[in-house]
Design a protein around this nucleic acid. Structure first.
Length: 652
RNA sequence: GCCUUCUUAGCUCAGUGGUAGAGCACUUCCUUGGUAAGGAAGAGGUCGUCGGUUCAAAUCCGAUAGAAGGCUCCA
């Protein structure tokens, strides 16, 4: 290698600079470091841009160093490249098994990838998974290279016209000539910007996860395609581990645990999406409500109660009728007068009317009205999901009516409250999302641009001042105002909105809310809508999945189980039960004719935090033998000692 | 709402054309047992519902209800 050959300066992530001949690829760079690395390189990140590891790295005209990061399975971008290439492999397998099917898009996702396919009436279901997986692995073993080729738009269109792939042509319509590339591996060529892994041989394990319908371009007016979800791995062992992980996650599913722990149920007769809270679930709910009630008293909220129905006119005024009339249960009519009432889909209009019950002075503000308000919404049947998406649910709702100069401060106080709630319940893995309006879709919203700008600025400023790490999402706002949403994941990794805080300049206008200022003039208050839990139902669902049903002591429906060794100690057990009940400790006595081992096992399975075993010794000494769920025997102690231990652990 | 799949005892599930089965739970009896399942017996299902094909349907076909995974939606 002569000096003239060295033209490419590569800056590696560790800060070192290495020189390579012009025309070197990411793989060459890897080879220069170690052969092991070269075997594992999936793609290369060149100056921040991910590209094929097999593609020559462009030498900058000014001779400056190029930053190169070699991506492997351990990098998120390496994984997504791997899965993107796997999507092509899936398509190749499908095409060879079902010639003539049409392909739409096949992107990588968080866990794996999917490909949208038009089977044109051909049936495809889970029974076909195995042969597709086998075909994929068979093609993978051929170690076919992913070959990149730039094509003109005309040639690209001609190719897919010849092949008869209308979706690809549709995609091409929106692409600029000169930027179009094809990738070919084995016998399959796809329109694709790349990048891809070097060859199919990296893919050692493949599993189709499920099939689902998906509208072309996500528009329900378009044809529904078949979406095939799949995942691949560079090692069979990793697939096995992933499947075990999925099984574990399913055990935490709130629908499963809710049934097992007798927290809630659904009944066909009652109606879909309408949860029935069983005694234990209701207890849990009540404790959560009381927890927040106490926090809200400290934060200066005033509880209010409003009816479950409201005149349709109320919602015409608020704008909910116009925006969500079709998504609400239709109005109930009184038989004589023909008045129309709606099951309330929102509490805010009721609270606005409470505000209006008397003239308000600037001295009265902020006025914080809080209610555990149960609302009903006609959610699409296909969208209902356990407790996370239901048709009747209770919001821990409150509306803060304040002066414009109080908005920032009030908003920050609400952020504090939401974070306090999350922290108390052990939710550390949340993300904060600023949900803004979609500037291209004005008809979705009510209110003036000026008010929207004010509201959006207020949220962003308050979030920044609180040092919250936020992501901005356009088009996610409520129709009357922007939101700060707190998102948490469920056991299967799906994101749900829990807490929400919304600034609203619009409803005060619609309801003509006023207060008298220090200047003796009428002014318009600003509303902040907020719900730290969001909905009790959804919050509890996520709580169940986060804790796998092992609730903190203060929330446990049954905090103790008293387990007499035999029926001889029944009286002592019952006396103990009443004593502890006096100390506000809740639970039950297991009087079944079973051995102690059995009673312990059943209490453990029912996830009861404390087991109190009483027999001859305890009855004689006035003690209890304490066992903590998941930990085991703590030894015997007096009832007073146990009560003290309990009080220590029951604190929020 | 749309696509795919599923629905058998209280729960978890087996049973693919010849009129239903297991484990757990439940009831009764025996057992009075000291830190994760003591033993025995019993009871329990018009196989989601309605209709069709068939000599015969849990099983095949259609409709309908509910559930699951997605898509669209989500105040």
């Amino acid at each position: 290698m002569t000096t003239q050959d060295i033209q490419l300066h590569v800056a590696l992530p560790d800060g070192s600079i290495r020189d390579y001949p012009a025309g070197s690829t990411g793989l060459d760079v890897a080879l220069g470091i170690s052969e092991g690395l070269a075997r594992n390189v999936l793609a290369a990140k060149i100056n921040g841009q991910v590209q094929d590891a097999t593609r020559p790295i462009e030498v900058p005209a000014d001779g400056s160093a190029v930053t190169v990061q070699l991506l492997t399975w351990n990098d998120l971008e390496g994984k997504s490249t791997f899965w993107h290439s796997s999507a092509h492999l899936l398509a190749e397998a499908l095409e060879s098994l079902y010639p003539g099917i049409k392909f739409a898009i096949g992107p990588p996702i968080e866990n794996g990838f999917y490909y949208d396919v038009d089977f044109e009436g051909k049936h495809f279901s889970q029974e076909d998974f195995k042969k597709v997986e086998d075909k994929m692995l068979e093609l993978a073993r051929q170690k076919n290279e992913y070959v990149r080729k730039a094509v003109s738009k005309a040639d690209a269109i001609a190719y897919f016209e010849e092949k008869g792939d209308p979706y690809k042509i549709d995609l091409l319509e929106n692409l600029a000539d000169g930027s179009i590339t094809f990738y070919t591996q084995g016998g399959f060529t796809d329109l694709c910007r790349g990048p891809h892994i070097p060859n199919t041989g990296f893919i050692k394990a493949a599993k189709l996860m499920n099939v689902a319908g998906a509208y072309w371009r996500g528009d329900e007016k378009n044809k529904m395609l078949t979406r095939i979800y799949a995942i691949t791995f560079p090692k069979q062992k990793e697939l096995d581990e992933y499947l075990v992980l999925l099984e574990e996650a399913k055990k935490r599913d709130h629908r499963k645990l809710g049934k097992e722990l007798e927290l809630f149920a659904f009944s066909e007769k009652v109606g879909q999406g309408l949860p029935l809270w069983l005694p234990k679930g209701a207890l849990l709910r009540e404790r959560l409500e009381n927890f927040l009630r106490r926090a809200q008293v400290r934060a200066g909220y005033s509880p209010v109660v409003t009816p479950h129905i409201g005149s349709k006119q109320l919602y015409v005024t608020s704008g909910h009728w116009e925006k969500y009339g079709a998504d609400s249960f239709q109005p109930i009519r009184t038989p004589e007068e023909g008045e129309e009432f709606m099951l309330k889909p929102m509490n805010c209009p009721h609270h606005c009317e409470i505000y209006k019950t008397k003239p308000r002075s600037y001295r009265d503000l902020p006025l914080r009205l809080a209610e555990f308000g149960t609302v009903y919404r006609y959610e699409q049947s296909g969208e209902l999901h356990g407790l996370t998406r239901v048709r009747g649910f209770t919001q821990d709702d409150a509306h803060i009516f304040c002066r414009p100069d109080q908005v920032n401060d009030e908003f920050k106080k609400v952020i504090d409250l939401v974070l306090y709630v999350f922290k108390s319940l052990g939710f550390s893995d949340y993300s904060a999302q600023v949900s803004l309006r979609d500037p291209d879709n004005g008809t979705k919203y009510i209110g003036t641009d000026e008010n929207w700008d004010k509201a959006e600025t207020a949220i962003i400023e308050a979030a920044n001042e609180k040092g919250l790490k936020t992501v901005m999402e356009k088009g996610e706002a409520a129709f009357y105002g922007p939101k700060l949403d707190f998102m948490v994941r469920d056991a299967l990794g799906r994101k749900w909105q829990l807490g929400t805080i919304q600034v609203d300049y619009n409803l005060p206008e619609r309801f003509e809310l006023e207060y008298t200022g220090a200047d003796n003039q009428k002014h318009r208050p600003v509303m902040i809508h907020r719900a730290p839990f969001g909905s009790l139902e959804r919050f509890i669902a996520i709580l169940i999945e986060n804790t796998a049903g092992n609730f903190p002591l203060w929330l446990s429906p049954d905090q103790i189980a008293i387990l007499p060794i035999s029926e001889k100690y029944e009286t002592y057990a019952n006396d103990l039960f009443f004593t502890l009940q006096e100390a506000d400790i809740r639970g039950f006595v297991d009087l079944r004719d079973e051995k102690i081992g059995r009673k312990i096992r059943d209490a453990e399975v029912a996830k009861v935090p404390f087991m109190l075993i009483v027999g001859e010794k305890e009855a004689a000494e006035g003690t209890v033998s304490v066992r903590r769920k998941g930990e085991g025997d703590l030894g015997s102690m007096t009832i007073a000692e146990f009560t003290a231990l309990f009080q220590e652990q029951v604190k929020v």
